[in-house]
Amino acid sequence: MTGAQQSRWAAAAMPVTALLFLWVFSWGHVMAEIDSANMTALQKHVSFFDRNKDGIITPSETIEGVVAIGCDIAFARDFAARVHAILGPKTSPVDVPLPHLSIYNEYIYKGMHGSDTGALDANGRFVPSKFKEIFSKHAKTKPYALTHLEVKELILANRDPNDPQSWVAPIKEWGLIYDLAHDKNGYLSKDSVRGIYDGNVFVKLEEERKSTQCVTWQNLTLI
């Protein structure tokens, strides 16, 4: 992602003071209950950012995960601030001490928003028929990929007219994934879109980034 693109997505992010981040990063917590063998697609999606796999995603873990998929640290901090301010209170158990900024994977379904594709149901489970509709309705240039314009069309087609507040999240989510995962010809493949829902696209992006860094390092040592 270019600096200009990251600045565009970060522009609407909620600012959080350095003091608050230090407070959150040093906050201790116990392991959350999470059955990794029976995760929903949505739980797998967010589990990528649960770097220590304890069922609880802290802002620092989200920052680490966002950097791992190819974003710069400034964007990652702004992204984490916005996401945790929204999802932390929604997914935190009532008996967890304030400030409720960590995201609990067990309750991530409570953070689902409207104006989405329907490829995840209300509990975060994958819905194959709705996933197929993404391409049958919007993949007009190639049957198994989406162009930038087709992604925009997809977002607009799924807007809930009765819930305007839900329009912003899909723009940011799809925009970020498109910027990071489209190929050199500008296509977002079906496999990449499928990987959005279960988090596999994040794993792939992290692996590609590590591979690129390794090649760059090797090239530098040969000069």
Rank of each mutant, 00 (worst) to 15 (best):
residue 6 Q to L: 06
residue 31 M to V: 03
residue 3 G to C: 02
residue 26 S to H: 06
residue 216 T to V: 13
residue 33 E to S: 10
residue 172 K to F: 15
residue 17 T to V: 00
residue 19 L to S: 07
residue 23 W to E: 05
residue 93 P to T: 03
residue 57 I to D: 03
residue 65 G to L: 08
residue 21 F to C: 05
residue 180 L to W: 02
residue 103 I to P: 04
residue 220 L to H: 14
residue 46 V to E: 01
residue 94 V to L: 06
residue 81 A to S: 07
residue 140 K to M: 10
residue 77 R to N: 00
residue 73 I to L: 08
residue 59 P to D: 00
residue 56 I to H: 00
residue 142 K to G: 14
residue 124 G to Q: 00
residue 38 N to V: 00
residue 20 L to F: 03
residue 218 Q to G: 15
residue 196 I to G: 05
residue 122 A to V: 04
residue 48 F to D: 07
residue 50 D to N: 04
residue 219 N to H: 10
residue 128 P to S: 13
residue 86 I to A: 07
residue 155 I to V: 08
residue 125 R to Q: 13
residue 185 N to M: 08
residue 24 V to M: 12
residue 215 V to E: 14
residue 183 D to T: 12
residue 138 H to R: 12
residue 139 A to P: 15
residue 208 E to P: 02
residue 65 G to F: 10
residue 15 P to H: 10
residue 8 R to A: 08
residue 94 V to M: 04
residue 138 H to G: 12
residue 3 G to F: 13
residue 164 P to A: 08
residue 112 M to C: 08
residue 136 S to E: 15
residue 110 K to P: 11
residue 36 S to N: 12
residue 106 E to P: 10
residue 175 G to I: 15
residue 37 A to I: 06
residue 182 H to C: 13
residue 136 S to G: 15
residue 35 D to K: 09
residue 113 H to G: 09
residue 194 R to T: 01
residue 53 K to L: 04
residue 110 K to T: 11
residue 68 A to M: 04
residue 155 I to G: 04
residue 97 P to S: 07
residue 207 E to P: 14
residue 201 V to N: 03
residue 108 I to Q: 06
residue 42 L to W: 12
residue 109 Y to C: 03
residue 119 A to E: 02
residue 193 V to N: 12
residue 51 R to P: 01
residue 22 L to I: 01
residue 49 F to S: 02
residue 150 E to P: 03
residue 147 T to S: 14
residue 135 F to D: 14
residue 166 S to T: 08
residue 162 N to I: 05
residue 72 D to I: 02
residue 27 W to P: 01
residue 92 S to H: 09
residue 54 D to F: 03
residue 178 Y to F: 15
residue 7 S to G: 06
residue 166 S to G: 05
residue 65 G to N: 07
residue 199 G to K: 01
residue 147 T to M: 11
residue 77 R to K: 02
residue 30 V to F: 05
residue 24 V to E: 03
residue 93 P to F: 01
residue 130 K to V: 07
residue 84 H to R: 00
residue 186 G to Q: 11
residue 150 E to Y: 09
residue 27 W to N: 14
residue 150 E to R: 12
residue 222 L to Q: 15
residue 55 G to E: 01
residue 151 V to R: 01
residue 189 S to V: 09
residue 82 R to L: 00
residue 132 K to F: 00
residue 147 T to P: 12
residue 30 V to R: 09
residue 99 P to L: 01
residue 208 E to F: 06
residue 163 D to M: 11
residue 104 Y to Q: 01
